[in-house]
């Protein structure tokens, strides 16, 4: 239990080990701790960011869905309108076609009537000529009276 040079030995060892710890033990351990702290902080921040982004994405999706519904409704409305238009157009076209066909038929009919009348008239003239010929026999020169007869025909 004497005080002796042991205390110098211990003092020297003290400085040596403090220096060793300061150089080889403390920095890597603290670096690892700090790095882990940073990793955890980053992870938490990323999770927070992810949560935030998820909320945003959900909002965005809801907006998109809403917009899509709106567009779909618009497209349906336009399609219905277009369908109505097409039906209308078809009706008009059908009407027009019908009118045209009727008009053509009428024109043809009139033509036929005229032609028949023409034929009838010609036949009446020739019948009248034949009749008059028969009545007058010789006294009547067909050629001489042809102009007169044509006038008569025209008057018919």
């Amino acid at each position: 239990m004497n005080i002796n040079a042991t205390l110098f030995g211990q003092s020297i060892a003290f400085f040596v080990f403090v220096w060793l710890v300061m150089k080889y033990i403390w920095p890597p351990l603290i670096a690892a701790l700090d790095e882990r702290k940073k990793t955890i902080a980053d992870g938490l921040a990323a999770a927070e960011r992810g949560k935030h982004q998820q909320v945003l994405a959900e909002q965005h999706a809801a907006e998109e869905l809403h917009a899509a519904k709106g567009r779909a409704a618009e497209i349906i409305a336009r399609a219905e309108k277009r369908a109505a238009e097409i039906i209308d157009e078809a009706k008009h076209a059908a009407h027009a076609e019908g009118d045209r066909v009727k008009a053509a038929a009428n024109a043809e009919l009139e033509q036929e009537v005229n032609r028949a009348r023409e034929q009838l008239r010609a036949q009446v003239v020739s019948l009248a000529v034949v009749g008059a010929g028969k009545v007058l026999k010789r006294e009547i020169d067909t050629k001489a009276h042809d102009d007169l007869l044509k006038d008569l025909v025209a008057q018919l």
């Binding site: 239990m1 005080i3 042991t6 205390l7 030995g9 211990q10 003092s11 060892a13 003290f14 400085f15």
Partner: peptide, 14 residues
């Protein structure tokens, strides 16, 4: 070692 005054005094001296 810490029951020897030399050792504890060596540390305290440091």
């Amino acid at each position: 070692p810490s029951a020897d005054p030399n050792i504890t005094f060596g540390l305290a001296l440091g």
